[in-house]
């Protein structure tokens, strides 16, 4: 056994197991803690610029990673023309920088807004730091080690499938630059802390809204304001 197996075989299995079991445990025994404990009531302006960009940026990029894992053939066909490859890469990079800027705003907000301090836990800081490492190494990879959207299918799709099918092949990760290795390891760290942090709110994505009947909302705020009285 060597470092490579430790970091990219054993650790991922531990992290994934803890993530799944911990999240299930928490949702059964502590169902009302599945939340990000929003601080929007305490500060909403910086939150708008930071939160929207981080969430949409990271969500689309995460879905892109998932797509490369599930449909590598489709991605290779899309990338078969250099123009399409460039378009995909630049879109991904723009979203990554958008998310990075949003994350920077959120970190700045936590630091400078005094009234947020009492509701900020150490785990919140850890989440912010790990996300920062993740997004920085991701943007670094996208610019310095091009073209991730293409070589993902030749390196990480087989690596991740080897983990999923219980025939781990860490040799895919071993020769890569350390920035990319850190990006991967950091993802497993995020999985590990997932059930113990605010990250669990990801599983509460309100898909029910897509199916429920519509409602009429009548806004009164615009019509009667405190100033008007």
């Amino acid at each position: 056994m060597n470092w490579n197996s430790l970091l990219f075989v054993i650790f991922p299995y531990i992290a994934l197991s803890v993530c799944v079991i911990g999240s299930v445990y928490r949702s059964i025994y502590r169902p009302f803690t599945i939340s990000s404990l929003s601080s929007q009531l305490l500060e909403r302006r910086k939150l708008y610029w930071g939160s929207i960009s981080l969430h949409y940026g990271i969500l689309i990029i995460l879905l892109g990673h998932l797509l490369a894992l599930l449909l590598p053939r489709g991605l290779m066909l899309w990338n078969a023309a250099p123009v399409r490859l460039y378009l995909l890469e630049l879109t991904g990079l723009a979203l990554g920088i958008w998310a990075l800027a949003g994350l920077a705003i959120l970190i700045y907000r936590r630091f400078t807004t005094r009234r947020l301090w009492p509701v900020t836990t150490r785990m919140d800081w850890l989440v912010l730091i790990l996300l920062l490492v993740s997004v920085i190494t991701g943007v670094w990879t996208a610019t310095a080690y091009r073209f991730g959207s293409y070589w993902f299918t030749a390196v990480f799709t087989p690596y991740l499938w080897s983990l999923i099918t219980l025939q781990p092949r860490p040799e895919f990760v071993a020769p890569l630059p350390w920035v990319i290795q850190l990006h991967v390891f950091n993802f497993f760290l995020l999985l590990l802390i997932f059930p113990f942090s605010r990250l669990v709110h990801i599983v509460t994505y309100p898909l029910g809204y897509l199916l429920r009947p519509w409602q009429i909302v009548v806004a009164m705020r615009g019509r009667v304001t405190p100033q008007a009285q």
Binding site: S53, T91, L93, A94, L95, A142, T143
Partner: peptide
Amino acid sequence: WFWAVGIGGALVLF
């Protein structure tokens, strides 16, 4: 080019 277009794209999103 990558940096320029990437940052430009992020500004458009903002």
